[in-house]
Design a protein around this nucleic acid. Structure first.
Lengths: 204, 204
DNA sequence: AGAAAAATCATCTTTTTTAATGATTGTACA
DNA sequence: TGTACAATCATTAAAAAAGATGATTTTTCT
């Protein structure tokens, strides 16, 4: 019984790379690819793969949503995230939404096969170890609340506390409180460092 | 006479994808790949390719530097940048440093061959058209000076004007002047917006 | 060599952020 | 059902950034 593999990624060369890696594998059947959410939907109406390799950031921006949907509609279909580095928060988000793990785009053929095998056994595959062993510094994003995120985004847009307060119908001191907890949670000395770290960690 | 192609990219799957796309081309000889600047250097000591496909952001962070070096040391070697979207400023930087153009990682086989052919004729290949037709909003980065960039980075790290002045041996008003021209060039209302825009445009 | 751009410094005012403390009201969850 | 935690508001003060103007010295490029 072959494992049906489908891939969703907006980079043709990555699709081609994975296809090339998997094409001679006896246990794997290449079902095709989609380069956006819409065509992935279209495919799933026709046929269900065993596993979907899914880029964590698609042009539609809703890779996380897609993962959630797939897992809800078709619980038998496993999702394995495909990512580059410094996308830890996005990956976490994807796993929270039902992905069975993720694999880095610079993984070797062996790692890829290992990941597919592991996931098909119902286990999860995380290559955090590989990521951690890289020198690339991964700023892990702190957990922030809905309100804090909302305010963080407005700060990044350049609004002052007064403007944010007006927009959200809250007082300036309140905005300030959230701002301070953001600074603390991110370990940032000031707004500049805050926005910089938030950007790097993928929240913005 | 075959065209010798070498690739520098930190994503194994992209390397594999391009190899797979090019392997049956009669006019192209696959010379190998490097996943970082160091091993690219090592290769160039042994053999000179006709064209190097080079990822714009390598783990060493010095893709632009590498491009510059290669073009200076070996003017006969063409460099074609490999990029994803929203990296316009980085690409521009690479072209300013001698790259003959760039191609998106979601390009088709035809586009890739076209790009290689065009570059080998000594022309430049830019897939800006393709990029522009995408809905992905590209924040084009303003041209900033070396000094401004230096200060921008220190601001992003959370240093105050006084600290920056001390570090760079310049006065606080000077730091302020640069800061203001950064705000103006980026069209940002304040530091938060500045860092946010700079991050999005890939400068940080 | 000369023009343009970059980098430097200064003064002064206003606005905004940061810090330090304290307190109340919901609400989710064990 | 009580205990975190989130979200709200307040006061006061110090630090920092932003805005306005003007000027000099280097670099860089043509």
């Amino acid at each position: 019984m072959k494992t049906g593999v489908f891939i969703v990624d907006d980079h043709y060369m990555v699709i081609e790379g994975i296809r090339s890696l998997l094409q001679n594998e006896k246990d794997i059947e290449w079902l095709g690819h989609a380069m956006n959410v819409a065509s992935c939907h279209a495919f799933l109406k026709q046929q269900l793969p065993d596993i979907i390799l899914m880029d964590v950031n698609l042009p539609d921006l809703s890779g996380i949503e897609l993962c959630k949907e797939v897992r809800q509609l078709f619980p038998s279909v496993f999702v394995l995230g495909l990512s580059t580095f410094n996308q830890r928060p996005v990956i976490q988000n994807m796993i929270d939404n039902g992905a069975s793990g993720y694999i880095l785009k610079n993984a070797t053929k062996e790692e890829l096969l290992d990941a597919i095998g592991t996931v098909m056994k119902g286990k999860s595959f995380l290559s955090f170890d590989a990521a951690l062993s890289m020198k690339d510094p991964i700023d892990k994003a702190p957990l922030i609340t809905r309100r804090e995120k909302e305010i963080l985004q407005l700060i990044a847009e350049g609004l002052t506390n007064a403007e944010i307060g007006e927009k959200l119908f809250i007082s300036i001191p309140t905005v300030n409180t959230h701002r301070k907890s953001l600074l603390e949670k991110f370990g940032a000395k000031n707004t500049a460092a805050l926005i910089s770290k938030a950007s790097k960690s993928g929240i913005l």
